[in-house]
């Protein structure tokens, strides 16, 4: 059996160097029939089931990010003999920082304040709240959730968290000022709720109408995880009616939202275009790690970050 090839999106050519082969269209590449196992495909886009069916068994799909469960059906890939790799921990600081950038921008109404100054309007009497001594609810204690919890503690916040994985439960037991609880309890007690869960295509939203309604009306929601974790219609209604004080959203479902979506007209929302991990240095790290996974797979048939 011949050695496999590393394929990369054409945009990565500068980063990849030899001996990777650049492609413009993943579909065209797969339809050409030139990809043979044990090749590795670096992929920077969603792979739907029809595209997945074209990937030969014994090949690797190497993604430059952590959350791949909404980009490809991991179980279906495994059943077909297609391996999938992601990158753990590449953007932990960047995403946790972006989470707090959104939390602070929403609690201080920073963008509204900026517009007010430029319009020459006087400040209102009180503006926003202090984070210290308030309750941060971290939903999901993977790497980013943990870092977010630590950041909250540094602001003097009380941190509640939910965790399902055993290592996360162990981490929480050893972490200062972080208490584990159930999701309903967390939602009821938190002033700031931040989502850090996996999301796979077709999953039900973690925060639906009922969950959103159980939050304090003074609370804010921040989502740097995946748009599908929140039922968008219910969230928009809660924000518009004052049932929820504000939101900071880096992810939406779909992205971008239709131009006439009512969320885009709300003043108590700060939005960013799925860039939490998008700092250039972070992006370069992610691409380098995805390439390393691909090369390692072609060389030895294994990668450090295989998704099971």
């Amino acid at each position: 059996m011949s050695a496999g090839t590393v394929y990369v999106p054409a945009a990565w050519a500068g980063e990849a160097g030899e001996p990777a082969v650049g492609y413009d269209s993943l579909r065209a590449l797969l339809e050409s029939g030139t990809v043979a196992p044990p090749s590795a495909l670096c992929v920077d886009e969603p792979v739907d089931d029809r595209l997945l069916a074209l990937v030969p068994s014994g090949c690797l799909l190497s993604f430059p990010g952590t959350g791949v469960w909404d980009l490809v059906d991991v179980d279906r890939a495994a059943a077909r003999g297609v391996r999938v790799s992601n990158i753990a921990n590449y953007g932990t600081d960047a995403i946790a920082e972006h989470t707090f950038a959104l939390i602070l921008a929403v609690t201080r109404s920073l963008l509204q304040a900026d517009r007010r100054v430029r319009a020459g309007l006087p400040p209102p009497d009180c503006w926003g709240t202090t984070l210290a001594s308030r309750v941060l609810g971290v939903v999901g204690l993977g790497a980013v959730g943990r870092r977010t919890a630590q950041l909250g503690a540094a602001f003097g916040m009380h941190v509640l968290a939910t965790a399902s994985r055993e290592d996360s439960v162990r981490w929480a037991a050893g972490a200062d000022g972080v208490r584990l609880t159930s999701l309903p309890d967390l939602l009821e007690r938190s002033d700031v709720v931040s989502l850090h869960l996996r999301y796979a295509r077709g999953d039900r939203p973690t925060l639906g109408r009922v969950e959103l309604a159980s939050m304090k009306s003074t609370a804010i929601l921040v989502n740097t995880g995946r748009g599908g974790l929140v039922e968008l219609t219910a969230l928009t209604e809660a924000l518009a009616s004052g049932a929820l004080a504000g939101a900071g959203l880096d992810v939406l479902d779909p992205e971008p939202l239709p131009a006439d979506h009512p969320l885009l007209a709300l003043d108590n929302v700060v939005l960013s275009p799925h860039v939490a991990a998008g700092a250039p240095q972070v992006r370069r790290r992610a691409i380098a790690a995805a390439l390393e996974n691909a090369r390692s797979f072609v060389r030895s048939g294994s990668t450090v970050d295989i998704v099971r």
Partner: peptide
């Protein structure tokens, strides 16, 4: 810190972009 983050992340431009 809020200003530090917002500037480092160019939040006002990101919000407009969305």
């Amino acid at each position: 810190i809020a200003m530090m983050f917002a500037l480092a992340r160019r939040l006002h431009r990101q919000d407009r972009a969305v």
